[in-house]
Protein backbone atom coordinates (compact mmCIF):
# COMPACT_ATOMS: atom_id res chain seq x y z
CA UNK A 1 0.00 0.00 0.00
CA UNK A 2 1.55 3.29 -0.99
CA UNK A 3 0.12 6.68 -1.75
CA UNK A 4 1.61 9.73 -3.45
CA UNK A 5 1.29 13.31 -2.37
CA UNK A 6 3.26 16.54 -2.63
CA UNK A 7 4.59 17.87 0.66
CA UNK A 8 6.22 21.29 0.76
CA UNK A 9 6.90 21.06 -2.96
CA UNK A 10 8.45 17.58 -2.90
CA UNK A 11 6.90 14.37 -4.20
CA UNK A 12 6.46 11.97 -1.31
CA UNK A 13 5.18 8.44 -0.93
CA UNK A 14 3.50 7.28 2.25
CA UNK A 15 3.15 3.69 3.33
CA UNK A 16 0.52 4.39 5.95
CA UNK A 17 -3.07 3.16 5.85
CA UNK A 18 -5.41 5.49 3.92
CA UNK A 19 -7.40 6.20 7.09
CA UNK A 20 -4.33 7.41 9.01
CA UNK A 21 -4.76 11.06 9.99
CA UNK A 22 -2.59 13.26 7.78
CA UNK A 23 -0.95 14.83 10.83
CA UNK A 24 0.45 11.45 11.89
CA UNK A 25 1.88 10.83 8.44
CA UNK A 26 3.53 14.25 8.43
CA UNK A 27 4.94 13.91 11.93
CA UNK A 28 5.76 10.21 12.27
CA UNK A 29 6.61 9.23 8.70
CA UNK A 30 8.04 12.44 7.22
CA UNK A 31 9.39 13.82 10.53
CA UNK A 32 7.73 17.18 9.92
CA UNK A 33 6.88 17.82 13.58
CA UNK A 34 5.93 21.49 13.10
CA UNK A 35 2.22 20.68 13.00
CA UNK A 36 1.19 19.88 16.57
CA UNK A 37 -1.36 17.43 17.89
CA UNK A 38 -3.15 18.97 20.84
CA UNK A 39 -6.67 17.53 20.63
CA UNK A 40 -7.20 15.29 17.55
CA UNK A 41 -10.75 16.59 17.37
CA UNK A 42 -10.55 19.70 15.24
CA UNK A 43 -10.92 22.15 18.14
CA UNK A 44 -7.45 23.57 18.77
CA UNK A 45 -6.09 24.35 15.30
CA UNK A 46 -2.51 23.47 16.27
CA UNK A 47 -2.30 20.88 13.48
CA UNK A 48 -3.37 23.27 10.71
CA UNK A 49 -1.66 22.77 7.32
CA UNK A 50 -2.56 23.89 3.81
CA UNK A 51 -4.07 21.46 1.34
CA UNK A 52 -4.05 22.98 -2.15
CA UNK A 53 -3.58 26.35 -0.47
CA UNK A 54 -6.52 26.07 1.93
CA UNK A 55 -6.00 25.77 5.72
CA UNK A 56 -7.34 22.53 7.21
CA UNK A 57 -6.92 20.74 10.51
CA UNK A 58 -4.75 17.80 9.54
CA UNK A 59 -5.89 15.65 12.49
CA UNK A 60 -9.27 15.22 10.79
CA UNK A 61 -8.02 14.58 7.26
CA UNK A 62 -7.38 10.92 6.39
CA UNK A 63 -4.32 10.33 4.26
CA UNK A 64 -6.46 8.83 1.50
CA UNK A 65 -8.10 12.22 0.95
CA UNK A 66 -4.85 13.93 -0.01
CA UNK A 67 -3.68 11.51 -2.65
CA UNK A 68 -1.98 13.54 -5.39
CA UNK A 69 -2.70 16.82 -3.65
CA UNK A 70 -0.35 19.52 -2.45
CA UNK A 71 0.25 19.80 1.29
CA UNK A 72 2.17 22.64 2.90
CA UNK A 73 3.27 22.73 6.52
CA UNK A 74 4.73 25.45 8.72
CA UNK A 75 8.19 24.21 7.74
CA UNK A 76 7.59 25.60 4.25
CA UNK A 77 6.83 29.18 5.27
CA UNK A 78 10.43 30.35 5.44
CA UNK A 79 11.38 29.90 1.82
CA UNK A 80 15.17 29.56 1.42
CA UNK A 81 15.64 30.06 5.14
CA UNK A 82 14.20 33.61 5.16
CA UNK A 83 11.38 34.16 7.63
CA UNK A 84 8.09 35.06 5.95
CA UNK A 85 6.86 38.60 6.70
CA UNK A 86 4.31 37.13 9.13
CA UNK A 87 6.94 35.09 10.97
CA UNK A 88 9.22 38.10 11.05
CA UNK A 89 6.63 40.41 12.58
CA UNK A 90 5.77 37.85 15.25
CA UNK A 91 9.46 37.64 16.10
CA UNK A 92 9.89 41.43 16.11
CA UNK A 93 6.93 41.94 18.44
CA UNK A 94 8.22 39.12 20.67
CA UNK A 95 4.78 37.57 21.05
CA UNK A 96 5.70 33.87 21.17
CA UNK A 97 5.45 32.11 24.51
CA UNK A 98 5.42 28.31 24.67
CA UNK A 99 5.00 28.29 20.91
CA UNK A 100 2.80 25.20 20.57
CA UNK A 101 -0.06 27.10 18.92
CA UNK A 102 2.05 29.15 16.52
CA UNK A 103 2.45 26.65 13.68
CA UNK A 104 -1.34 26.51 13.38
CA UNK A 105 -1.82 30.24 13.83
CA UNK A 106 0.79 31.02 11.18
CA UNK A 107 -0.81 28.67 8.67
CA UNK A 108 -4.26 30.18 9.26
CA UNK A 109 -3.05 33.78 9.04
CA UNK A 110 -0.82 33.13 6.03
CA UNK A 111 -3.75 32.05 3.90
CA UNK A 112 -6.01 34.70 5.45
CA UNK A 113 -3.62 37.51 4.55
CA UNK A 114 -3.27 36.20 1.03
CA UNK A 115 -6.94 37.00 0.55
CA UNK A 116 -7.24 39.96 2.94
CA UNK A 117 -3.86 41.70 3.01
CA UNK A 118 -5.26 44.86 4.59
CA UNK A 119 -7.54 43.20 7.12
CA UNK A 120 -8.76 45.06 10.20
CA UNK A 121 -8.19 43.93 13.77
CA UNK A 122 -11.72 42.54 14.14
CA UNK A 123 -11.41 40.49 10.97
CA UNK A 124 -8.07 39.07 12.08
CA UNK A 125 -9.60 37.98 15.38
CA UNK A 126 -12.47 36.29 13.58
CA UNK A 127 -9.97 34.46 11.37
CA UNK A 128 -8.34 33.08 14.53
CA UNK A 129 -11.43 31.60 16.20
CA UNK A 130 -10.32 28.07 15.38
CA UNK A 131 -6.93 28.41 17.06
CA UNK A 132 -6.50 27.95 20.79
CA UNK A 133 -3.57 29.70 22.44
CA UNK A 134 -3.39 29.05 26.15
CA UNK A 135 -0.41 31.32 26.90
CA UNK A 136 -0.65 34.69 25.25
CA UNK A 137 -4.24 35.89 25.56
CA UNK A 138 -4.10 36.58 21.79
CA UNK A 139 -4.08 40.40 21.84
CA UNK A 140 -0.36 40.90 21.39
CA UNK A 141 -0.10 38.46 18.52
CA UNK A 142 -3.12 40.16 16.97
CA UNK A 143 -1.28 43.50 17.43
CA UNK A 144 1.61 42.04 15.43
CA UNK A 145 -0.72 40.81 12.69
CA UNK A 146 -2.40 44.24 12.56
CA UNK A 147 1.01 45.87 12.18
CA UNK A 148 1.70 43.60 9.20
CA UNK A 149 -1.66 44.44 7.62
CA UNK A 150 -0.90 48.15 8.02
CA UNK A 151 2.39 47.73 6.19
CA UNK A 152 0.77 46.36 3.08
Amino acid sequence: MSLRLVVNGEDRVSRAEPLTPLVDVLRDEFHLTGAKVACREGFCGACTVHIDGQPVVSCLVPLGMVEGREVRTVESLAAAGELSPLQRIMEEHDVVQCGMCFPGILMVLTSFFREHPRAERGEIKVALVGNICRCTGYERLVDAAVALAKRS
Binding site: E75, L83, D94, C98
Partner: peptide, 16 residues
Protein backbone atom coordinates in the same frame (compact mmCIF):
# COMPACT_ATOMS: atom_id res chain seq x y z
CA UNK B 1 13.01 44.35 26.12
CA UNK B 2 15.34 41.54 25.20
CA UNK B 3 13.51 39.42 22.60
CA UNK B 4 13.22 35.67 23.11
CA UNK B 5 15.99 33.67 21.49
CA UNK B 6 13.74 30.62 21.13
CA UNK B 7 11.00 32.43 19.18
CA UNK B 8 12.50 31.88 15.73
CA UNK B 9 12.62 28.10 15.89
CA UNK B 10 9.16 28.04 17.43
CA UNK B 11 7.92 30.10 14.48
CA UNK B 12 9.73 27.87 12.00
CA UNK B 13 8.17 24.73 13.49
CA UNK B 14 11.64 23.41 14.36
CA UNK B 15 11.47 23.37 18.15
CA UNK B 16 11.42 19.83 19.42
Amino acid sequence: NLPRRDARDKLLGRTR
